[in-house]
Nucleic acid binder design. Structure first.
Lengths: 161, 161
DNA sequence: ATGAGTGCAAAGGCTTTGCATTAGG
DNA sequence: CCTAATGCAAAGCCTTTGCACTCAT
């Protein structure tokens, strides 16, 4: 499961150094917050977790950390971007996204699914002239709360295939 | 590849009616544009394709069309949202995303992958208390151009017409 | 006629940037 | 010391909204 490796900070420091950036206290704090999160965080959650960090610093440092390959931007539903540690720091996983409230949960999928996602899609990308790097799988669903309140206006999201 | 089915407009009209909305000329135009696109479009591309539609109308109508289940918002890379026809109108498919320039191409994946994505992930979501609705698979890679230039000089989604 | 839809412009909200200050190497 | 990094405030940019006008029913 998504376990924080113990040397996240070392890796972060190393990668920042590689692009001539320092591992400042603000950046360390961001990495700390993200490494203890169990799901991607939006900037408001991050500033809430580190109320002393100004928004501009949060954005600026997340950007630097992203360039360094320490964090990645995660796209969910809604407009705001969320962040989490890079895959090799956090471990490969996928997201379960609530189509109603946008809530995101980290999950693992069975090994055979992973294997097929890595090996079984090659022909599909050949024609497009792409070089495959990885995949991003989001399972879309409705969370407990949203299922219960089952608020009106559920015309959308018809079934898949 | 999955293309505009015969009566997209009929379906759109029908679904709008179901939520007490009219199928106005502006909305018809949006559906027309999206149905002829080969990849999700961001609002700038849409307004470019229909220069007479004011942005406010584009946003407002896309929102209505989304509620009606005619279009869906697609999140790729970058901040801006893109739109495409709903799955049952466009056909189930996935996206091939260039990690450098953000270019998005519609693709199909092998049947066995689809099957596994629909059936093989149930245990993973049980614990989280989610009801599965569908999945979203993005294959991340590097497109021809970006592979060649090996540089991240970007701008999103290529133009359609 | 009558309310939905439209268009323009202004407002909103997240994100980025300029610039002077502070801190880490 | 010297440059990177920070913090505040202002600017940017995509998106939403108010309001009067137009169109379809």
């Amino acid at each position: 499961m998504t376990q924080t490796r113990r040397d996240v900070h070392d890796v972060a420091s190393e990668r920042l150094r590689a692009i001539d950036q320092r591992y400042s206290t603000g950046r360390r704090k961001l990495v700390q917050i993200l490494s203890s999160a169990v799901h991607p965080l939006v900037t408001t959650e991050i500033t809430a977790a580190a109320s002393d960090l100004p928004q501009s610093s949060v954005y600026r440092n997340l950007s630097v950390l992203e360039e360094a390959g320490v964090v990645v931007k995660v796209l969910t539903t809604g407009e705001r971007s969320a962040f989490e540690l890079a895959e090799d720091l956090k471990g490969h996983h996928h997201h379960l996204v609530c189509v109603d409230c946008g809530k995101v949960v980290d999950i693992d999928v069975p090994e055979d699914v992973e294997r097929l996602l890595s090996d079984g899609v090659s022909p599909a990308i050949k024609d497009a002239g792409f070089t495959l790097i990885g995949h991003r799988l989001d399972l879309m669903g409705r969370c407990d709360q949203c299922s219960r309140s089952s608020r009106a206006a559920n015309f959308s999201t018809t079934s898949v295939k």
